[in-house]
Structure formats: structure tokens, C-alpha cells
Design a binder for these strands. Sequence first.
RNA 1: GGGCCCGUAGCUCAAUUGGAUAGAGCAACAGCCUUCUAAGCUGUAGGUUACGCGUUCGAUUCGCGUCGGGCCUACCA
Length: 543
Amino acid sequence: MKQYLKAQLLGTLKSLGVPENIVPSFEKPRIAAHGDLTTNVAMVAAKQIRTNPRQLAQKILEGLKLDGTLIDKAEIAGPGFINFHFTDKYYQAQLEVIIRGGKQFGKADIGKRLKTQVEFVSANPTGPLTVGHGRGAVYGDTIARLLEWTGYDVTREYYFNNAGRQMRILGDSVRLRYLELLGEKIEFPEDYYQGEYIKDIAQYLKDQHGNGLQNEPAEGIFKRQAEQEIFDDIKNTLERIGVKHDVFFNENTLYETGQVKEVIEELRKKDLAYDQDGAVWFKATAFGGEKDKVIVKATGEPTYRLPDIAYHIDKFKRGFDFIIDVLGADHVATYPDVLAGLQALGYDSSKVKVPIHQFVTIIQEGEVVKMSTRKANFITLDELIDEAGSDVVRYFFLMRGIGSHLNFDLKLAKEQSEENPVYYLQYAHARIASIIRLAESKGVDVNKSYDLSLLNQTEEISLMKLLSQFPDMVESCAVTYEPHRLAEYLHDIAGSYHKFYHEHRVVGEDLNLTAARIALCLATKTVLANGFAILGINAPEKM
RNA sequence: GGGCCCGUAGCUCAAUUGGAUAGAGCAACAGCCUUCUAAGCUGUAGGUUACGCGUUCGAUUCGCGUCGGGCCUACCA
């Protein structure tokens, strides 16, 4: 439809002598009375050729010859908008498209099978995933689903590091708890991992080995056991909310293969790395950075920047042409250095997108809970799923833009889980399923031919209009990485359907009308189910 | 001190990326079940979009400033 109108407008504009650099763009008006599609081209053009926008719009309108079976009317409104009203017939035809499309309806191929990687979660195995991780996990997974839906070839990746200081402390935390279980008096340092899960791991080791591990070093079996259990736990939690990574990439491999060393050498060759105070520095200032950054400490240990750069180079070398790193707000400061490093070594850093989600604040009994894995006063993602269920958790994280700080009132979530907005959507789907079951039990053939022109009631038309927007919605959410708009849209669909249901009876005396309305129900069910699939929530047949 | 994000109804958040009359859900109040799922529907009330200037046909959206909150600001990740 847009293409059609655009072509018509371009022709008319040309005949009016409007410069060719002016290309009409369209929007869906917020208000129904303003039609189905609107263009501000008259206002844009009027500015350039310095004329009155409304007069120009009038001329354009007079020059347009529109297909009456598609466009009901076109009119000028406000400061110079041209509004197009589509015919009912057009929307009725869209319904057919939806039903024929079925599970495929809304899919697009704008991605052209581009090899794409979405890296998300990437928490080191030092403790259970928190609610904060949950937001990144659900968001990253949904971005991956959106990209798959729009034709990208997507790999989900998890990057982790099981070496380093934090893991050493983890191992030693377990060792101390183990010794404690054997009855030794221990000092448990404040900056060690305080969580109960450490004691559980220690208990397991005691059950398995008795007191045979008394003289084992922290970095041996203690660390290994902790890592394995925690990682199993993390994977299990992710699975519970429908998140599954294709690749788990261990930072260590970057050292083992010499890729980290290579980065330093390359940077030195290009004169972008130098030694000072016993450390190796990267000339971040050459790429707009405020000051140069250390990449290898005086101790000989690299900072996170160096392996991160090597890691991203590895991504490119594995053939990814489009890379998305989902990060939490605490990492804002880190990625510019990585991008600069990539740029320095001749990689196109514009292929790397870094959506950053703000923190989740947990409110419990009216008070803010400060999250810290170390101090263990966190709410785990697992606990949240126990309380609310996967669908609620996913929807809750997806219904809001990632740019805003999310307040999660635990008390509210528990008490009102029945009132949760996700049920509003799922209820619409279940309701449709129920009606279709009823129709079938009454012998109505739901696949029978139908006369869609019978669907001319206000509620039917507005529902059809919404349904037809699904493909556009999917595409724009994929392009902007904003799944919350899809959540919002599905909410509108559900609302529109509930209104229709309330005003009109589907299964009735008039068999032709019944068949047409069943078709509308099927189309609605299709769009809801497809939307749910992208958001990763269930489409229940019954509630 | 500097950088990034944010400030919209009592609360939690939207607003088609600069569009026309700023919308939902909770909470409050008043209605709707002898007919397909009331986890629903209808209505009432709730706003100087933190504040001030600017850019233009037009600003919640862009720019500058002020105030307030979060995150970062390591030779931690």
C-alpha cells in the first residue's frame, strides 16, 4: 500500500515541479479519524519551494488519481497533512493474507541471511543469575528471535571467564566453608562470597570426600566443583525462561591460541601501544578517548580490554558480519575502548551494535534492595521464576523500553500475579481457542469458505486494521531493537479483540456471518500466537 | 569534577523516533454475567510532560542551562 501511494505521489509531485529530492514518507496517524496513512510531504515540500503547505496539498490532491477499490478517500487536514482512508475491502483482503500466512505471517527477509551474533548474559560463574541478569537475558534472546523472524542467520553466544581473581576468591570461599563444616574455626573474609550456595557446594564436597580435601588448594577441586555447579545452575535457569545459547565461549581460549598476544603486537606495530610505568598502554586518545588505557598491568596481567578486543576480532574471523553485544549499564564505560581497538586494527566497528539496558531495582516491602553477588543480598532469577512463572517474567522485562530504570516491586508481583498484564494477552488467545472449539462442536467448518465483506462493524474494522500492521511492527522492532513496542502492540490487539467479542456474537444463527467472524478470530489468533512466539511466551488454548 | 542513562497521572510505564486532542495497567469510584471464557467490557476521576530559554508550520521528543535520581569514572570484570 505504501509503495502504491508513494508511486502515485511521486508522479503528481513531479508534474507540479517539486524537486526530486523530496520523497514522501508515511505514518500511521495516532487518531482513527485521521485516516489509515498520512503523509507530511506537502509540509516538507512547501518549506523548500516556499509556498503555503495547505495550498500545495490541495494541488497534490487534485493531481492524484487513486484506485477506488483501495482508497476510500483522501483529504487535507491540520497544517497540511494529506490523510488517506483505506476501503473496508482492502482490510478484508488483508485478513486472507494473514490466514494464508499462518505461522509464517509477519516473517521478513530484510536480514538476507546475514551472519549475525547476539552475545548476551555472559555472567562469570561466580553465583546464580540475578534479576538484573534476567533483563539482559530475556532482552537479548528476544532480539535474537526478532532477527531470526526478519531473516537474519543468528547465533546466540555466551562469553565467560573462569580464570582470574574473582574465581580464585570463589574457590577459596568454598574451601573455607568446607573446613568450617569439618569443624575448623575459620575467619570468613568480608569480601568473599557470602551466599548460601557456597555452603551447599562445600556440603556436597564433604559428602563425597569426607575430610580428604583438607589440604587441597583453593584453585583445585574447590574452584572446579563450584564452577561446574554454578554453571549448571545458570544454564538451568536460562532454560526455564526459554533462553538457550548456541556457543559458550571461554575467554581462556584467547590466551591459549595466542590471540591476545597478537593484539598487543599488532597495536605495537601500528604504534598504538607503548610502555609506561611497567604497564602497556593503548593510545585510546588517538580515537577520541579521554585518556590512554592500560591493557597489560605492571604485574603482567592484562586488563579486560585486551581480551575483549581479541574476542571481538575472533567474532569477525568466525565470519560474523553483524555483532550485537547486550550489556548492562555498569559496562557503559568499557565498550568504547573495545570499539576503538577494533577500529585501530582495521575492523569495521560500525558492525558492532551495543544496546545497553538500565538496571533493575528490586523493591521489597517498600525498600530498595541493593544487589551484590558478593554480598549475596540479591534476588535470584530462579526465585523470581518460581514466584511468577516464565511468561510473566519474560513479559515483565519486555514490556518496557530498556533505556529506563525498571522498578520491580516484588510484593506486587507476587500478590497480583493474577492481575498481570500478560494474562490479558493470553486470555484473548485462550478465548479465541475456546470459541473455535465451540464452533467445531456445533458442526461449523472453520476452514469453509467465507464472505469477508460481511465484516463491516466498527469493532471488526479496527481489529482488522491492527492485525494488518503486524509485519511492519515486527520489522521496525527488529531494526530498532525495541521489543517493548511489540508487547505494547499485542496488548492493543488483545484489547481490540476483547471489545469485538463483547459487542458481537461469533457463533450464531447466520452461518455466513459465523464463518466470516471465525475467519477474523483465526487471523487474530495467528497474529497473537506469532507475536507470542517472538516474545517467547506461551499461547494457551485454555485458561 | 567529567562521561552515559533517566525525570510524563497517586504508583509502574507508553507515546509510531519531530506530528494533529500525551495514552495503558495498577490503585479509587460507578455500572455490565438465564447467550461463545467476567483473567473480560463500559463509564468517572486523575497532567503546566521536573523547571527556564531556544530551534520551526509543530517539541514529551532536538540544542543550551538549572534542579533531582541511577550507573560509570581502576594497572576490578
